[in-house]
Computed example of a mutant assay.
Amino acid sequence: MLAASVTSFSPDSPLDGLEVGDAPEPVTPEHWTTVDVRAASLNHHDVWSLRGVGLREEQLPMILGTDAAGVAPDGTEVIVHGVIGADGHGVGPRERRTLLSEHHPGTLAERVAVPAANLIPKPAGLSFEEAACLPVSWLTAYTMLFTAGGLAPGNSVLIQGAGGGVSTAAVLLGVAAGLEVFVTSRSAEKRERALSLGAAAAVAPGERLPQRVDVVLESVGQATWKHSVRSVRPGGTIAVCGATSGDAPPAELTRIFFQEIRIQGVTMGTRDDLAALANFVSTQDIKPLIDSVHPLQNTQEAMARLLSGAQFGKVVITV
């Protein structure tokens, strides 16, 4: 079958280790099944894999991809939950939690094997391309807003960075849930686009907000951490899902303990969270924002788009 795999690590030039070609058919242990992939979306996790973070040389080649939408053997249209081993389904209670493409082959392929319990029905109102955006970025945004952040209608949130999959998802989900949404971006164009999605305000990085917010969604790290700590209200929460600009500088611990700020790490979410997210976007008629769509054989081009940072929304691969 055709698949996009990391075949070698290149921290400085990650595309050098990406190859699209023939790969073995997936193996399905007991309680596992296969999904014929119709679409998958790219994530920064794929970039880290190409740079050698989270993988070892002896695991190569490894098929990339942590999310997908496709068709199960019985013809059901499904979304794949890419967290394996979180609760023992299909792997046993002692296997540590991993994401697809870390220990088990990923979703950038014609077929992928997953525990049968990891399949969620695809909402009829979403295309395969739209549904493929949900399992990683959208699930992470949903968890940060409503599980880690505990936000409710009328609350406020700052989303650091605009244009990426998590940030655009958070804007759309937050607006639909009745939150007051603030966004930062270095790009004036991206700030304008965030406003068009319903954000209350969009400011340059580091710019003072009209008010302190209940929750900050932090995925940038070093470049925005100080601003995040100074933008959240006393007793508020900073939900962290990544650090694309590197680890944070001095942690501002004095401000954090004195103002009783809670720091909460987030890695995607549970299957139940994904099911709730799918139901939410379906009932609220929310459409994931797609930046561009590329066929599987053009994964190099798609990954280059993600690496450029120019995207606004999700970069999607179709099979």
Score class of each variant (00 low, 15 high):
G236T: 14
A86E: 15
S127I: 12
H227Q: 12
S231P: 10
A310S: 14
A223Q: 08
T168I: 12
K314R: 15
E192H: 12
F128V: 08
G52Y: 03
T299H: 07
P153S: 02
T267D: 04
E189K: 08
D46S: 01
P250V: 13
A141F: 02
S187R: 01
A188M: 03
D16P: 00
N43A: 04
T267Q: 01
A199Q: 03
L60S: 10
W138Q: 04
A194D: 01
V83M: 15
R208S: 14
V183Q: 00
I286A: 11
G150H: 13
V78G: 01
V35W: 08
V80N: 07
M1T: 14
K122Y: 12
I84R: 02
L99H: 08
I290N: 00
L126I: 07
K122F: 11
V240Q: 04
E102G: 09
L197C: 14
T76Y: 00
P135Q: 04
V171Y: 00
V319R: 13
T237P: 03
L134M: 09
V281P: 02
G75P: 07
E19K: 14
T143V: 14
V112E: 04
H45D: 05
E95C: 05
S308K: 06
R208V: 13
D247S: 11
G269Q: 09
G235D: 13
D67W: 01
A68P: 13
F9G: 08
H294I: 01
L42Q: 00
P249Y: 02
D273S: 13
T270I: 02
A243C: 05
Q259P: 11
L50H: 10
V91C: 13
G174T: 06
T224M: 04
V80W: 05
